[in-house]
Amino acid sequence: MASEDVQTNLRLPADLKDRLQTSASENNRSLSAEVASRLEASYRSSEGLVTKAELEDSLRKAALRFESEQIMTASIRTMLANNVIRLFEQLDPDRRTDAFADAYDFAKSLTGRGSPGLEEAIAKIMRVEPINSQASKLASALREQESFFDSVVQAENEKKKATKPA
């Protein structure tokens, strides 16, 4: 205890004292040091001041969110491009318009080397933010979208087979 520190008695609910004691142990501090640290942090927070560690933590979390959003955007773009390619290739050549051919060419350029595939992007999302249920829901939705387009293409193929003269 520093010479300018004063001793004070304080009444606390038992569960709050237990939580403080647990935090103190986790932070390798005494109960008094933990209480002082938390009080100082509350004053810094109310004054708009942050510590270097708090700033670094906020920046790290923001960078992870940004990377996760970039990966999700890339995976959605790739999925949509793959669906355009699949639909174009399944479409009868006489029904292909110039605009659809342009979309096909653009989609092909998006799925070239360096573009993350759906599974790769989902794996990265889950590594970056494994607790994020939104990322997990997005991954499931993307898989469902892929399955839906696969079933549409399969139904179209079966329809073609059924209408072809024998």
Results as ranks from 00 to 15, higher is better:
residue 72 M to L: 12
residue 100 F to N: 03
residue 165 P to G: 07
residue 127 R to K: 07
residue 9 N to R: 15
residue 13 P to S: 08
residue 163 T to E: 14
residue 145 Q to H: 11
residue 127 R to C: 12
residue 49 L to V: 12
residue 47 E to S: 14
residue 90 Q to Y: 05
residue 140 S to M: 08
residue 104 Y to W: 09
residue 158 E to P: 05
residue 49 L to R: 14
residue 45 S to A: 15
residue 108 K to A: 09
residue 110 L to P: 00
residue 133 S to H: 15
residue 20 L to N: 04
residue 108 K to L: 11
residue 48 G to P: 04
residue 95 R to E: 01
residue 89 E to A: 06
residue 40 E to P: 01
residue 58 S to A: 08
residue 90 Q to I: 00
residue 84 V to W: 05
residue 145 Q to P: 00
residue 82 N to L: 14
residue 133 S to E: 15
residue 158 E to A: 15
residue 139 A to T: 10
residue 44 R to T: 01
residue 38 R to Q: 02
residue 162 A to Y: 06
residue 5 D to P: 02
residue 115 S to G: 04
residue 61 K to G: 02
residue 65 R to V: 03
residue 61 K to Q: 09
residue 2 A to Y: 00
residue 64 L to Q: 13
residue 29 R to P: 01
residue 151 S to G: 06
residue 27 N to L: 05
residue 60 R to T: 05
residue 102 D to R: 10
residue 142 L to M: 11
residue 25 S to A: 06
residue 126 M to H: 09
residue 31 L to V: 15
residue 111 T to V: 05
residue 72 M to K: 12
residue 126 M to I: 12
residue 28 N to Y: 13
residue 3 S to D: 08
residue 74 A to M: 15
residue 18 D to F: 07
residue 40 E to I: 12
residue 91 L to H: 03
residue 135 A to R: 03
residue 67 E to M: 04
residue 18 D to G: 07
residue 13 P to I: 05
residue 81 A to K: 01
residue 157 N to T: 15
residue 49 L to C: 13
residue 166 A to E: 12
residue 97 T to R: 07
residue 58 S to H: 12
residue 32 S to N: 11
residue 28 N to I: 07
residue 89 E to R: 04
residue 110 L to W: 04
residue 163 T to C: 08
residue 101 A to K: 05
residue 128 V to I: 15
residue 100 F to S: 06
residue 137 K to W: 11
residue 19 R to I: 00
residue 138 L to Q: 14
residue 112 G to M: 13
residue 116 P to Y: 00
residue 156 E to F: 02
residue 161 K to P: 01
residue 30 S to W: 11
residue 41 A to T: 06
residue 35 V to H: 01
residue 46 S to T: 10
residue 82 N to D: 11
residue 120 E to C: 09
residue 74 A to Y: 12
residue 51 T to E: 00
residue 103 A to T: 03
residue 81 A to W: 01
residue 8 T to Q: 13
residue 83 N to R: 10
residue 88 F to W: 12
residue 52 K to D: 05
residue 30 S to P: 02
residue 32 S to T: 15
residue 7 Q to K: 05
residue 17 K to V: 05
residue 86 R to D: 02
residue 24 A to F: 03
residue 62 A to N: 03
residue 19 R to L: 10
residue 16 L to F: 02
residue 32 S to Y: 07
residue 40 E to V: 15
residue 58 S to W: 08
residue 130 P to G: 02
residue 110 L to M: 10
residue 131 I to L: 13
residue 25 S to H: 06
residue 91 L to Y: 00
residue 135 A to M: 04
residue 9 N to I: 13
residue 137 K to E: 14
residue 148 F to R: 12
residue 80 L to C: 10
residue 132 N to Q: 07
residue 14 A to T: 11
residue 151 S to E: 03
residue 22 T to H: 14
residue 117 G to K: 12
residue 46 S to I: 10
residue 24 A to N: 00
residue 142 L to F: 08
residue 122 I to E: 01
residue 41 A to G: 10
residue 133 S to K: 15
residue 29 R to F: 02
residue 18 D to H: 07
residue 94 D to A: 10
residue 110 L to T: 02
residue 51 T to L: 00
residue 30 S to D: 14
residue 6 V to Y: 13
residue 72 M to N: 02
residue 30 S to G: 09
